[in-house]
């Protein structure tokens, strides 16, 4: 556990906590971008370059912008008056702590967990590409197909509904 790891972890956790506690939704979205960047930094510290860069490219560059757009297009910028915490927050914390303990216990005692920490395999970008294009080509294609279908669906939703209205004598 190096100093850099502690710093990035702290920043990430703090940003994540901020996302949950702030009232202004746009602030929350920006804090989420910080949390994403922190996660990317953690990946980079684990020498997972590709995942780290992809995290920044996809999450900070695209998802955060998407969330921000969604907030701006769906509601006014007014912050809600009521408190973030509801009255039952204590019960919520207790339940989540219990779930966390259970999950942690299950993971730690699992027989699938290797007893000694394996040496992290070097994963240069080239190997990732080779794996995606040979061993995992079917999942990749399926993901591509699903995304294409989603995009076509989005286009159809966004299309103008009444075609007659469009051709109605406008220049």
């Amino acid at each position: 556990m190096t100093l850099a790891l502690i710093i990035t972890a702290l920043v990430t956790v703090l940003a994540a906590a901020t996302v949950m506690s702030l009232r202004n939704l746009v602030h929350c979205a920006l804090a989420m971008a910080v949390a994403f960047s922190g996660v990317a930094a953690l990946y980079l510290q684990l020498n997972a370059e590709f995942v780290g860069f992809a995290e920044i490219l996809v999450y900070v560059g695209a998802i955060a912008i998407l969330i921000v757009f969604a907030i701006l297009l769906t509601r006014s910028g007014e912050t809600p008056e009521k408190s973030v915490l509801t009255s039952g927050w204590l019960a919520g914390v207790a339940v989540s702590a219990m779930v966390f303990t259970l999950l942690g216990w299950a993971v730690l005692t699992s027989s699938a967990l290797p007893k000694e920490i394996a040496i992290a395999p070097a994963a240069p970008v080239k190997n990732i590409g080779d794996a995606l294009m040979s061993k995992f080509v079917l999942p990749l294609e399926i993901v591509g197909l699903v995304l294409t279908a989603a995009m076509i669906g989005a286009v159809i939703i966004a299309l103008k509904e009444d075609k007659k209205d469009n051709s109605g004598g406008q220049p």
Binding site: E49, I56, L57, V60, G61, A62, I65
Partner: peptide, 18 residues
């Protein structure tokens, strides 16, 4: 000189939007 230098460039370039 990263292995994924090009990806790095595009990744940080995307952060300008925010």
């Amino acid at each position: 000189d990263y292995d994924a230098g090009l990806l790095f460039f595009f990744a940080v370039g995307g952060a300008v939007e925010i």
